[in-house]
């Protein structure tokens, strides 16, 4: 599943290290961690080096074979996380996942509904994590809607937390880490969202965005007060667009209607 990142092992290890840092595990404790979408086990090796025990899940048998050949220490499992995870409640001290979550939003077949898969994944993950522990997902969100969908599903399943963005002003180094908290331990420290790296200017300071329903409502209200959707929108099939398409069609040797002052104009209603 982590196929997008296998070509850059160094950066993958770096991201795993950063994800581990964001987990905020108690110091000097040997923890049991979950690596979701472990691929060939590169991220797991980082966990090993830091003295943790891990269990890795991946949907790709060939990647797991690679991991087996590399003789990683963690246990491997063939698992489709969209089907939910088969763990007893409260067994893991944390979970990391590098460049995986965006794949869960894909629907490869008719029976796969992204929202249902995300919900099943997050609800089983929430139960598998010990209270007060965290799950950190490094991911490449396609757009805001996708991020919103993921966040909504996670919140519905009981997670709190938000997005940490490292180097928000750099195109190359910018990284999204979704930092989710699985409840609050009885006597544990209060869960706080960590700061993103490379945040200097006040504009970037808003990068540790906390998602909540009221924020989103506020955004929508601001949008509405700007004059609503209709007024600012330009027609998709404007005159320029039509002319461009015609030009292209002519190049291809297709027959087009000749250009005139009526091109792209709206017709009068017929009745």
């Amino acid at each position: 599943m982590a196929c997008g990142a296998v070509h850059f092992p160094n950066s993958l290890a770096e991201m795993a290290l950063r994800a581990l840092e964001l987990l905020c595990l108690p110091e000097d404790q040997s923890s049991l961690l979950l690596d979701i979408g472990c691929g060939s086990g590169l991220s797991g090796e980082v966990l090993e080096d830091e003295g943790h025990t891990w269990v890795g899940l991946d949907i790709s048998p060939s990647m797991l074979d690679v991991a087996l050949e590399r003789e990683v220490e963690g246990d491997l499992m063939l698992h489709d996380i969209g089907q939910g995870m088969a763990f007893r409640p409260g067994v893991f001290d944390g979970a990391i996942s590098i460049s995986v979550l965006q794949w869960l939003c894909n629907a490869d077949s008719k029976v796969q509904v992204p929202k249902a898969r995300l919900t099943r994944f997050f609800s089983t993950l929430y139960s598998a994590l010990a209270r007060g522990s965290r799950a950190v997902f490094q991911m490449y969100p396609e757009n805001d809607n996708q991020l919103d969908l993921i966040m909504t599903c996670a919140t519905r399943c009981g997670f709190t937390g938000g997005l940490v963005i490292d180097y928000p002003n750099s195109k190359k180094a910018k990284k999204f880490y979704l930092c989710l908290f699985a409840g609050q331990a009885a006597n544990g420290p209060r869960q706080e969202l960590p700061q993103g790296l490379g945040v200097d200017d006040p504009q970037g300071a808003a990068s540790g965005v906390k998602y909540s329903a009221s924020d989103r409502r506020l955004q929508m209200m601001q949008q509405r007060s700007k004059g609503g959707k209709g007024k600012t929108r330009t027609p998709i099939k404007s005159k320029d667009w039509i002319l461009r398409r015609k030009e292209l069609a002519k190049l291809r040797g297709e027959k087009t209607a000749s250009d005139s002052k009526f091109t792209g104009r709206k017709r009068r209603p017929q009745f």
């Binding site: 797991l64 087996l68 491997l76 063939l78 489709d80 089907q83 939910g84 029976v111 099943r120």
Partner: peptide, 14 residues
């Protein structure tokens, strides 16, 4: 198999 359990489910089991 080879120490890797197959935890995949069929469509009707999800």
């Amino acid at each position: 198999k080879d120490g890797i359990p197959n935890m995949l489910l069929a469509e009707h089991e999800i």
